[in-house]
């Protein structure tokens, strides 16, 4: 499969294709916002919520496609709706939050699969593209929409960083000091839904959780402060997204799967060799 050529050609060759340039642009932006938003999910122990929102976007995406609307918007609405529903079930009954997440996201996901299967009979859309990502599917409009979402997400996080830090570390203390924690929490849900929506073309909804959680978790093993976790996480996320796309290009793999394999490999390295927390580093420090 790999042609005989030097590493420079290996890197530059795919860049002659417009579709690859579009995918790489989206991949960089997605790598950044996933790491930033995912760091909040990780420190608040809400990894499952990331999974819930990402699976829940599917019916909105399908409906929007069917009705000829913007699929990003449809997916976003479904994602936010799922968080509202999860919170509502949790509040109105003694069902625990993780159970409510499991119930809601599998129901939304099943509805999405059903809708897409029905739609597929009339129109040609390939379900796999949304589930696992497809680098051929990224249009100019997708690049534009992703850029808008990325600017929005990063702008909000920068502007309310200190409030989000206080809230995610000590929600009770933040609330007691007068911060609107309900609003901060809703804002965070919206940011997660936006990030998932931006990621679905390149990574796909099933595997986006990996790009949300793993870069931050990897960085968490290496640096001690949240903003450092986010910045290093961005680097890890971008590296994984880009190299995943190259693997996808050369080996004809679904891009989502390739990206996830790279980021998981990076996590394994940090897990084993992190100077402070690595399993092997700790072992070697022993007398």
């Amino acid at each position: 499969m790999l042609p005989e050529m030097g590493p420079i050609h290996w890197l530059l060759d795919p860049l002659q294709y417009d579709f690859m340039l579009r995918s790489l642009a989206v991949a960089v932006m997605v790598g950044i916002i996933c790491a930033v938003v995912g760091s909040y999910l990780m420190v608040q122990r809400l990894a499952l919520l990331g999974d819930a929102i990402s699976h829940s976007v599917l019916p909105g995406l399908a409906l929007a496609f069917w009705l000829g609307g913007n699929i990003f918007l449809g997916a976003f609405i479904a994602g936010v709706l799922s968080t509202v529903l999860i919170a509502w079930i949790h509040r109105q009954s003694s069902i625990k939050e993780d159970a409510a997440m499991g119930i809601v996201f599998s129901a939304f996901f099943a509805l999405g699969i059903t809708l897409i299967t029905v739609i597929q009979k009339e129109n040609k859309i390939d379900l796999n593209h949304f589930l696992f990502g497809n680098i051929l599917g990224v249009t100019v409009a997708d690049v534009r929409d992703t850029a808008i979402i990325a600017a929005l997400v990063l702008g909000v996080v920068v502007l309310i960083y200190k409030e989000l830090l206080f809230y995610s570390f000590d929600p009770m203390g933040a609330r007691a000091s007068g911060l609107p924690v309900g609003l901060l929490n809703s804002g965070l849900m919206v940011l997660i839904a936006l990030t998932v929506v931006a990621s679905m073309k390149v990574v796909g909804v099933i595997l986006v959780l990996s790009l949300l959680i793993t870069p931050g978790a990897t960085a968490y093993l290496l640096v001690p402060r949240l903003h450092q976790v986010m910045i290093l996480g961005c680097g890890i996320g971008v590296f994984a997204s880009l190299s995943g796309l190259y693997l996808s290009y050369y080996f004809n793999l679904p891009s989502g799967a390739a990206i996830v394999l790279v980021v998981s490999a990076l996590f394994s390295l940090a897990f084993l060799f992190s100077p402070s927390q690595g399993v092997i580093s700790r072992y070697r420090r022993r007398p």
Binding site: E163, L165, F166, S177, Y220, P224, R225, L226
Partner: peptide
């Protein structure tokens, strides 16, 4: 992931 300093600064948010 926060230092002692980060926590004290939360009092100034």
């Amino acid at each position: 992931p926060a230092t002692a300093w980060d926590v004290v600064m939360m009092g100034r948010v």
